[in-house]
Each structure stands twice: as C-alpha cells, then as structure tokens.
Amino acid sequence: MSEFVIDIERQLSKLGKDIQDFVERIVPLEDQGHDFTPACDIIESGEQVKILLDLPGLSKKEIHIALKEHVLTVKGERADQLSEEESYRRQERKSGVFSRSFALPENVNTAETEAQLRNGVLSITLPKSEVLNDTQSIPIK
C-alpha cells in the first residue's frame, strides 16, 4: 500500500477514537453511584483455580456464594451508610447490588471449594481433581 493510503487509515482510526471518547464524555456508559461490579482475578495452576474478588467494606454475612451446574455465582450488596441529614458531595465508591458468575472447568472438585474473606478480598479456592463431587453452597471462613 502507498503511504497515502496508510496515512488515511491512521487518520480515520484516530477520528473514530476521538468520536468514541466524545460520546463517552457526553453519555456515560454506566449509572454513576449505583450498582457496581467488583474487580476480580482468576488464577489457575495445575492443582487449583483461585478466584479473587475485591469486596472492601463487606462482611461475610453480606456475601452469598452458590454453585450450580459448574457455574460459581457470588452475590451481595454494599449499602450506602448515610443518615437522613447527609448527602454526597462527591461519590466515587460504588454501592448497590452485585452479582458475578464464573463458568468453572470440568475438572474442578466443587465439593472441596473453600472461601475466605480477608482484608476486603474474597478468595475462592477450587481444587482440581479426577474424582468430582458437587456442592450447592460454600461457606466463607
């Protein structure tokens, strides 16, 4: 291709990005200050799969973990802590209901799944096994 065609493609790509940035500034893609999606990492080794979710400010009682047909679901709610006289001047921390679901590999033994909540991070460990047993609910330690 000629340098002219490459330059036109580069300019059109930049124009497309500029338009997308403009639209996102004018029309936010998310509803500010409401439901949130906790950040997560999924780590896999030869022995296990580990899911880490950032849930600062939540207690064990506010989190529910369920397993059904090799899909792990984590649900909960982070409520606002304002009194009637208070209002937000700035709100950057998300609150509301959340639900995250994860399809699990077939070689995960869900009956031996463990969950821990430490320092605002929920850690779910799912050991791999040839012998598979199933479970419906996972208590958080």
Rank of each mutant, 00 (worst) to 15 (best):
F4G: 00
I43A: 02
V71A: 04
T125H: 02
G57Y: 04
S83L: 12
R89Y: 14
F22Y: 12
P28C: 11
G57R: 02
T73G: 04
D31I: 15
E30L: 13
Q11S: 08
K75E: 15
Q116E: 09
E9V: 03
P127L: 12
V131G: 06
L29D: 14
P28V: 11
D80F: 08
K68H: 14
K61G: 08
M1R: 14
H70G: 05
K61R: 12
V121G: 10
C40W: 13
L126E: 02
Q81M: 15
I42M: 07
F102V: 05
T73R: 10
I65S: 01
T113Q: 04
K60W: 00
T37S: 12
I8P: 06
F22L: 14
R10D: 07
L117E: 06
L122V: 11
I140H: 08
G16K: 11
Y88M: 03
A39M: 08
E30P: 03
V23S: 11
K75N: 15
E69F: 04
F36Q: 06
N133E: 15
Y88D: 02
S83T: 15
T73M: 06
T37A: 13
R93Y: 07
S87Q: 12
K68T: 10
S123R: 03
I140M: 10
F4M: 07
Q11F: 09
I138D: 03
R90I: 13
I63D: 01
E84A: 15
I65P: 01
G33K: 09
N119M: 13
S95P: 01
S123V: 06
D21E: 12
N133Q: 15
D7A: 14
H34G: 09
A66C: 08
P38A: 10
F22C: 11
A79Y: 08
Y88H: 10
E24P: 00
P127E: 08
L12S: 14
N133V: 11
L52I: 04
R78H: 13
I65H: 00
L72H: 01
V97F: 11
K61S: 14
T110V: 09
R89A: 08
V23I: 14
H64N: 09
I124C: 08
S2F: 01
I138C: 08
L53T: 01
L104G: 05
Q116H: 04
S99V: 13
Q91E: 13
H70D: 10
K60M: 04
R100D: 01
E86G: 03
N109Q: 03
I65F: 04
A115F: 04
N119A: 15
V5E: 12
S2D: 07
E112K: 00
E106A: 02
S123G: 11
K50P: 00
C40E: 13
S2M: 03
R93T: 10
S137I: 11
E30A: 15
E106K: 03
I19D: 03
I63F: 07
N119W: 03
D31Y: 09
P105N: 03
S13R: 15
K128F: 00
N119D: 15
L82K: 02
R100K: 10
G16S: 10
E92Y: 11
L12P: 09
I26N: 05
A111K: 04
